[in-house]
């Protein structure tokens, strides 16, 4: 702000010099930004425009030269599509379970590991490990673990109740999906919360202890409020990520090793982006699929806004400056 905010007093020569200087500054700014500016225009904005145009057409993916504009038809159709509604419902259910539990787990891990522990590096790596496993590999891990025959999970339950034979991916598909997603994201969130905890000045907690607060009270009334911006951020990121889930439900479908159209996950794991994927690649409704995805984008935006709007009630920005 320094240049612009100064009163433009004095001689015009000085004013010209100022202007020249701020022009040069602006130029430097744009020079630094240029990779992203050019990249955004060509690799994001342009395809995005095509996707937006596509959502108003009946494009089938085969012939670009014969595309018909259908106005808002794809959008009105989406609102009346029972599968889209079912998928949206499942996705929202996933979101309201995975996000709070997931963030809770991340926070709990961070609070536990923030104590003085031996082998904390090793423990950190153990909790972080799932986050490094690519989603295709992670799905294999969980399919194997929950396999009714060769899976360890049934074997463990079998110790307490013999002859357990639970088909996890059939009977509890959403549970497995949720656990998989929470497990995979836990390490990443943990690191962020750990960072947040290290940024809280030790005096705050020490002062509370001296005042006779129990460790739980310190956590509840000192640590958590100070950590609330981080919690808020993790919730926002979690909401965005969960609403866009596609690969995990497909890969957890029994008998599937790769991602291909025509895979039908258990009905409970039929998510919104999966429905769009099917619309595009099974039914060749490129326009309709694009419309579904834009609706999702609008929803993500809306939810994020709601989160921001309500955040004032519980997010505490007190310590900073």
């Amino acid at each position: 702000m320094s240049a612009a905010a100064r009163p433009i007093a004095g001689s015009s020569v000085r004013a010209v010099a100022w202007r020249r200087r701020s022009a040069r500054r602006a130029l430097t700014f744009y020079a630094f930004l240029s990779p992203w500016l050019v990249g955004f225009a060509l690799l994001t904005a342009l395809p995005l425009a095509v996707a937006l145009l596509m959502s108003f057409t009946d494009y089938d993916g085969f012939n670009l030269d014969r595309v018909g504009f259908v106005g808002l038809e794809n959008y009105t159709r989406a609102l009346a599509d029972p599968d889209a509604q079912h998928a949206l419902q499942r996705t929202l259910i996933l979101m309201v379970t995975v996000v709070p539990i997931g963030v809770g787990v991340q926070l709990a891990l961070a609070l536990l590991l923030d104590q003085r522990l031996r082998f904390s590096g090793l423990l950190r790596t153990i909790f972080y490990l799932p986050h490094v496993i690519p989603v295709v590999g992670g799905a294999w891990v969980w399919k194997l673990f929950t396999d009714p025959n060769g899976g360890l999970l049934n074997a463990i339950i079998g110790i307490f109740s013999p002859d357990t034979y639970i088909r996890w991916l059939v009977e509890y598909p959403t549970v497995v999906l949720s656990v998989f997603v929470i497990w995979a994201a836990a390490g990443g969130g943990m690191v962020i919360f750990l960072a947040g905890l290290q940024g809280i000045p030790a005096e705050y907690r020490e002062a509370a202890m001296i005042d006779g607060a129990s460790p739980w009270q310190v956590t509840r009334f000192v640590t958590l409020p100070l950590l609330s911006p981080v919690i808020f951020f993790q919730v926002v990121v979690g909401v965005i990520a969960t609403l866009q889930i596609l690969q995990q439900p497909i890969l957890l479908t029994p008998g599937i090793t790769g991602i291909s159209p025509g895979t039908v996950p258990p009905r409970d794991n039929y998510v919104f982006v999966g429905h769009a994927y099917n619309a595009i690649f099974v039914n060749h409704l490129f326009g309709y699929g694009a419309a579904l995805l834009w609706i999702l984008f609008a929803l993500v935006l809306l939810l994020t806004l709601v989160l921001f709007r309500t955040s004032g009630r519980w997010v505490f920005y007190g310590v900073q400056q």
Partner: peptide
């Protein structure tokens, strides 16, 4: 644009006092 599949880790939370209007 790259589609980072795991958004939770590397996105720091500071300076996120972005308001609704700005968003």
């Amino acid at each position: 644009m790259s589609a980072d599949t795991k958004p939770t880790l590397n996105a720091p939370h500071g300076q996120l006092r972005t308001t609704r209007r700005r968003l």
